[in-house]
Computed example of a mutant assay.
Amino acid sequence: MHRRFKPQTVLEASDASPTLAGLVARARDASERLKAVETLIPADMRAAVKAGPAEEDVWCLLVQGSAAAAKLRQLTPALVTRLNAKGWNVSSIRIKVQARH
């Protein structure tokens, strides 16, 4: 007995699953936050910075390399100010250095 499943997009599947819908919303929020502060990050560093999750008033940025993380830590006050001006309630940004593969 073979079942045929109708292929679904991620958005269609997320509409049918509250858990998946929550994950999609969190990913979209993180992406929008990064877009809001992107111009504050030096152009040559942008590829090394990825949006991480937000929990309450703390947002996480994932960074490749300790040098980029150090520079990003210097920019944190400006990033927080920009995010708050754009309507997000952010009190701090956590920087996590990702290991290179």
Rank of each mutant, 00 (worst) to 15 (best):
P77W: 07
E55P: 01
F5L: 02
R3D: 00
T76C: 09
R94Y: 02
I41A: 06
E56V: 15
A78D: 11
Q8W: 12
Q98E: 12
A47S: 14
V37S: 04
C60M: 12
H2S: 07
L62D: 03
D57K: 15
S66R: 11
S14L: 04
A99S: 13
P18C: 00
R100K: 11
A69H: 15
G22M: 07
V10P: 13
H2L: 05
E56K: 14
V80A: 03
C60N: 15
V90L: 08
K6C: 09
S17I: 00
S66M: 14
L20W: 09
L83H: 04
T76G: 08
R4F: 09
R73C: 12
V97W: 04
Q8L: 15
A43I: 10
D57W: 11
I93S: 13
R73S: 04
S91A: 11
H2Q: 03
A21I: 00
A69S: 15
L40P: 00
V63F: 03
V24Q: 11
G87H: 08
S92P: 04
R94H: 11
V58D: 03
R28N: 07
L20T: 07
A69R: 14
A78G: 01
Q74P: 02
R28D: 07
L72I: 14
A25K: 15
D29I: 14
I41T: 09
A21S: 03
A70H: 03
A47W: 11
L40C: 00
R94S: 15
M45R: 00
I95A: 02
G52Q: 04
T76W: 06
E12P: 10
K35W: 06
V37Q: 03
Q64L: 13
G65A: 13
E56A: 15
K71V: 15
R33Y: 04
L83G: 02
L34N: 09
L79P: 03
K96I: 12
P18H: 01
K35F: 02
K71C: 06
P7D: 07
A85M: 11
A99T: 12
L61F: 06
E56N: 10
I95L: 01
G52H: 11
V90C: 10
W88P: 10
A99N: 14
T76R: 15
S17K: 02
A67M: 06
V97E: 13
A30Y: 13
P42E: 07
E12L: 09
I95N: 13
I93Y: 06
A67Y: 12
I41L: 06
V97P: 15
S14I: 05
S31W: 14
I41C: 02
A68P: 00
K71Y: 10
V49K: 04
A54N: 08
A47H: 10
S91N: 07
